[in-house]
């Protein structure tokens, strides 16, 4: 169980300019869809963008607060 604010703060620690949207996929706040928009992603492949988000959320994923995570990682111009 984790709140959207806590998820956003974890991500913004690693990606300061990120706009983060968190969706609860199952009503239990541990199966999440996370959309991260940042221009830090501009020169990064999809794999590396997602790796950045996984690294930012490493702690809550390891301790089980996040059980399942879907990631969308885009730049501000939707690229």
């Amino acid at each position: 169980m984790i709140t959207a604010d806590v998820v956003s703060s974890f991500i913004q620690r690693a990606i300061p300019d990120a706009t983060v949207t968190v969706m609860d996929r199952t009503g239990t706040m541990d199966h999440l869809s996370v959309r991260v928009v940042s221009d830090l992603f501009k020169d990064k492949s999809l794999l590396d963008r997602h790796r950045l988000v996984y690294q930012a959320l490493d702690a809550p994923m390891k301790d089980g607060r996040i059980h399942a995570l879907e990631i969308k990682a885009e730049t501000t111009d939707g690229g």
Binding site: L46, H50, R51, Y54, D58, M61, E70
Partner: peptide
């Protein structure tokens, strides 16, 4: 793969993450 979750997909011997990618 430096990728913490399952499933992990390989196409033609190359890693592509999962359906998020």
């Amino acid at each position: 793969t430096n990728w913490p979750t399952l499933p992990k997909v390989f196409i033609n011997g190359t890693f592509y993450g999962d359906t998020d990618v």
